[in-house]
């Protein structure tokens, strides 16, 4: 399914309604006596913050049906932004109360109620830890795998304490129907998390893969070839990605998203090309043949149009070429004649990932390649520097904008720049696709 503003609007409306559901639940049914405006405000932000926390689990649950209209990476980007807002809402809840009435300090006083004080203090600490460990994970040297488990546990703890706190305060939650709704609202994220972290890995166990090839590529990258063991293999659309677990257990926390780089026509050997980026990817070349692997997916809406008359403009840098490579290989295998313009940024000629195969594809497909080198050798007479607005204009001015779709993949800065520039050129939102994984 491609992006449509109708789907996006429905999706956003559903999100807002679910986040407001505690407030809606509060105003239906019997109303308790009103308190001061500050208390009601505080309760309001607390309710909304807690509902947002619950929705966070849905956003990060990799539910294909939920993620489809927007693309999973956009969903995770939204999850990240929503997490910050949820944090602000939840923190505002005690701050408003404490700032307007010091009597509320009793909630945090262990002499008044030890368990309550402990839980509420711990939940504030957990929230701060949740945000700090996510926004500054790399700076504090927290490994991705550890972060993933801590993230889920802290989130569940916050949601659980939030629910208990809400039910104990006993305001706006009277009546069995409302209590049931609250339990469902909190139980659903819990069930989802169990589904993501337990049930899905269990299902994946029935679909193992085996590493059949580890190939070194230009530009410090490695291609890993996986063959399905005892099943037909995953069917995907070029441009999509999957979460890969290398090792004997699908429960491993070392699960990372990578784009397919092989042709979607070939399912007996699925390839991923991974660049050494200074973290766990540095060991990818040491993967042994025969290693068991599991794939969760496919995900992503970064896929070419079915209509062969629509051309593809790919603006990529470095390892951002991988999803495009999958498209080009698929076009070749399916004998597609669609026009493709590839603007491909790299530092120098010797680090251009898939350089030789792209040159070959240029003769087989209706493909024009523009290499842009930031540190070229002295004899380089083509595009030098970075992929700038001015450079893009030079090539995009030559095509009929309405007959093309645009695919952008590369470092964050490049993607922000190119997305904005395409919009300023009048390219409609629905025709711009981007893929990024630097979520955490």
């Amino acid at each position: 399914m491609k992006f449509s503003s109708k789907h996006a609007a429905m999706w956003i409306l559903a999100y807002v309604l679910l986040v407001l559901s505690p407030l809606l639940l509060a105003i239906v049914g019997p109303l308790p006596p009103a308190r001061s405006i500050w208390v009601e405000l505080s309760v309001g932000v607390g309710f909304v913050g807690l509902a947002m926390m619950g929705m966070q689990v849905v956003l990060s649950g990799r539910l294909r049906s939920v993620a489809k209209p927007l693309g999973l990476d956009t969903m995770l980007q939204f999850h990240r932004q929503a997490g910050i807002v949820a944090f602000a809402f939840i923190l505002a809840h005690p701050l408003i109360l404490l700032a307007t009435n010091s009597a509320y300090l009793d909630f945090l006083d262990p002499r008044v109620n030890f368990l309550r004080a402990l839980a509420l203090t711990a939940v504030i600490g957990a929230l701060v830890l949740l945000i700090v460990s996510t926004l500054w994970r790399e700076q504090i040297g927290l490994r991705y795998e550890w972060w993933r488990s801590i993230h889920a546990l802290l989130a569940l703890f916050v949601i659980f304490v939030g629910l208990v706190h809400t039910l104990q305060v006993q305001y706006y939650v009277s009546g069995n129907v409302r209590r049931l709704a609250w339990f469902l609202a909190i139980g659903a994220p819990l069930a989802l998390m169990i589904n993501t972290r337990v049930i899905r890995p269990l299902q994946l166990r029935r679909f193992p893969y085996s590493v059949i090839e580890v190939r070194e590529e230009l530009g410090n990258a490695w291609t890993i070839g996986l063959a399905p063991v005892g099943h037909a293999g995953m069917r995907f659309t070029p441009g999509q990605f999957a979460w890969i677990t290398l090792g004997p257990s699908p429960f491993s926390l070392k699960q990372h998203p990578f784009s397919f780089s092989s042709s979607a026509n070939v399912s007996d050997s699925i390839e991923f090309t991974i660049k050494e980026l200074g973290d766990f990817t540095n060991d990818i070349g040491k993967t042994e043949i025969g290693t068991t692997a599991f794939l969760e997916g496919p995900f992503g809406a970064f896929t070419p149009p079915n209509d062969q008359d629509i051309g593809v403009v790919a603006i990529v840098a470095g390892v951002g070429i991988t999803p495009i490579m999958s498209m080009l290989r698929t076009f070749r295998d399916r004998k597609r004649s669609r026009e493709v313009l590839l603007v491909y940024g790299n530092s120098d000629w010797d680090t251009i990932l898939f350089r030789n195969e792209i040159a070959q594809l240029e003769s087989e497909l209706n493909l024009k390649v523009v290499h842009v080198l930031s540190s070229p050798s002295d004899d380089w007479d083509q595009e030098a520097g970075y992929i700038t607005d001015e450079l893009l204009d030079r090539y995009l001015d030559q095509i009929d904008q309405d007959r093309w779709q645009y695919f952008v993949c590369g470092p964050e800065g490049l993607m922000d720049e190119v997305e904005s520039h395409l919009r300023s050129r009048g390219v409609p939102l629905k025709d711009i696709f981007s893929e990024r994984f630097q979520i955490v």
Partner: peptide
Amino acid sequence: MLHIYVRWLMIAIGIGLVLAVVVFALWRTG
């Protein structure tokens, strides 16, 4: 959906939610 718009979308939703909470509090306290 473009990433450059996700932040703005969240800011808009955040403002909308704050307004909803304010309306709720005002409605409750008359």
